[in-house]
């Protein structure tokens, strides 16, 4: 089982174009959490925590840039972070569950980065170094969110965050499963509507 997991992991980086795509996806995730944290800093009423969120946001924004550069190196072509929204977690969850959610994400991120550093240690030492510098920050993020979580102290926050975290991942997986079905249905619908295309006129020119 372990061997299979290792094989799948290796494959996840090895397929052509996979490395830069994955790095770019990481960069996107970092940029997204920077936005969540900036919003949290604006929304919390506690000045000390606002400052922590801003520092954390600056870290994540920097990570996004590092990973973007690395993706560009792997792709051997310039790239851009797509501009996407974020989930507005603080506004939706409240501060305690937001912290719990961020803490879970940091912990998962830290574990994944540990695996990535191990994987690239020999294969691409420069990339491993870049990832290691990020990893140091992630450890700090994991620790301070745990501290704040205890301080804010809402025992059910972690459970709520865990449900949300799972929910979001399931939905993503569900999306991946239903996507081909949706695409197929819509493709058929499009084909069936094709005769209507003949009726479509170009907008009239000139003043109405």
């Amino acid at each position: 089982m372990r061997a299979l997991a290792d094989f799948v992991y290796t494959l996840s980086w090895r397929l052509p174009g996979r490395t830069w795509r994955r790095l770019l996806a990481f960069a996107e995730a970092e940029a997204e959490s920077a936005l969540e944290l900036r919003c949290a800093a604006a929304l919390t009423t506690d000045a000390a925590r606002a400052a922590r969120y801003l520092e954390h946001a600056a870290d994540e924004a920097r990570h996004a840039q590092i990973l973007l550069r690395r993706a560009e190196l792997a792709k051997q072509a310039p790239s851009m972070l797509p501009r996407r929204g974020h989930a507005h977690l603080f506004a939706r969850l409240g501060e305690a569950a937001f912290l719990a959610f961020v803490h879970l994400g940091e912990r998962r991120g830290r574990r994944q980065f540990e695996a990535h550093v191990r994987f690239f240690e020999k294969r691409d030492p420069a990339l491993a170094n870049a990832l290691r510098s990020i990893l140091a920050d992630e450890r700090r993020h994991e620790a301070y969110t745990a501290e704040l979580l205890t301080a804010v102290g809402e025992p059910r926050a972690t459970r709520r965050a865990r449900w949300l975290d799972r929910g979001m991942r399931w939905r993503r997986a569900g999306g991946a499963l239903t996507e081909p079905l949706f695409a197929l249905t819509m493709g058929l619908l499009y084909l069936l509507s094709a005769p209507l295309a003949a009726l479509v006129r170009r907008g009239p020119a000139g003043w109405r």
């Binding site: 900036r38 604006a42 501009r83 996407r84």
Partner: peptide
């Protein structure tokens, strides 16, 4: 407020 440039949501 959302800090996303041209946020359409």
């Amino acid at each position: 407020l959302s800090r996303v440039k041209n946020d359409p949501s």
